[in-house]
Design a protein around this nucleic acid. Structure first.
Lengths: 142, 142
DNA sequence: CCGCTAATTGCGAAAGGCTTGCAGGAATCG
DNA sequence: CGATTCCTGCAAGCCTTTCGCAATTAGCGG
């Protein structure tokens, strides 16, 4: 069985020492479904199904789920963190500072760069954890 | 004559169509002196010399000075922007997510990476405008 | 050196985003 | 089923950044 986007297997959560609550399930499902998303977007999405969920519950669950390894957050600039499922980690985030679009690039593209940072500065980068800023192809040609 | 850190040549500012106010001079001098710094740090520094300066004036001047090309801001994550002098732009920012230290690396180290992003994705990066996250050498060895 | 006009400042209020304390409620475990 | 500990909802609060407005002042042309 493949795990559909948005599906959450209950035991997944319990296995990592967390309680299974409807709120937690919904938050995890929302992030998996939405892909890159801000706490605000996640909250909005979750409330469509379960209007009672509090924003702070969303924040707390994002934190908890991240600690448990389900999620990862990335700084896409301008203060807001964005979250995505941990098993979708292996890509870079290319954020267009003009139109705001987020695209992805293969990790391999940065391999040489990352290695040089280690070699020359002893600096261990996790280049998937933050955004690469610039102008996307369609904005450049405009 | 070399421009000392913290020195601001009055005509520099006027030449770019801005009024020269003591507040503006102080903000620019502070950023040049402090290197990478947050609005909060800049404000604190400026107030040592001129306690009356308002925080919103600092923000407005940072914005104005950036538009005029004196400053550049970078997203060092966690919401806060940090500013530095524009003529010190040609380096990457390596931010340690563990100890928070900011070090710099030569732009050349990212050349290949930047070129590949253009070649494969048409994505025009300005890699000096944002931080590269990771663990610095001293945190890695600990 | 003087006065004018528009840019700038200070101040207070407010928006936006995230966190926290607390008391009640619910998921687990035995 | 009962106890325990974790979670949730709610409201208040914090922090950073922005805004409106009236008072001030830099820079320009007499």
């Amino acid at each position: 069985m493949t795990l559909m986007a948005g599906d959450v297997a209950p035991h997944e959560i319990r296995q990592r020492g967390l309680r299974l609550t409807p709120q937690r399930e919904l938050v995890l499902a929302a992030v998996r479904e939405l892909g890159h998303s801000t706490p605000e977007e996640i909250s909005t999405h979750v409330r469509k199904l379960h209007p009672g969920i509090n924003l702070s519950t969303v924040y707390r669950n994002l934190e908890t789920l991240e600690k448990a390894g389900f999620l990862v957050h990335t700084h896409l600039g301008h203060g807001g963190a964005t979250f995505h499922a941990a098993d979708a980690t292996s890509h870079l985030h290319l954020v267009c500072s003009n139109c705001g679009s987020v695209s992805e690039a293969d990790l391999a593209i940065a391999k040489g760069f990352v290695e040089e940072l280690v070699a020359e500065h002893g600096f261990q980068t996790d280049i998937t954890h933050f955004a690469i800023y610039g102008e996307c192809a369609s904005c450049v040609t405009k």
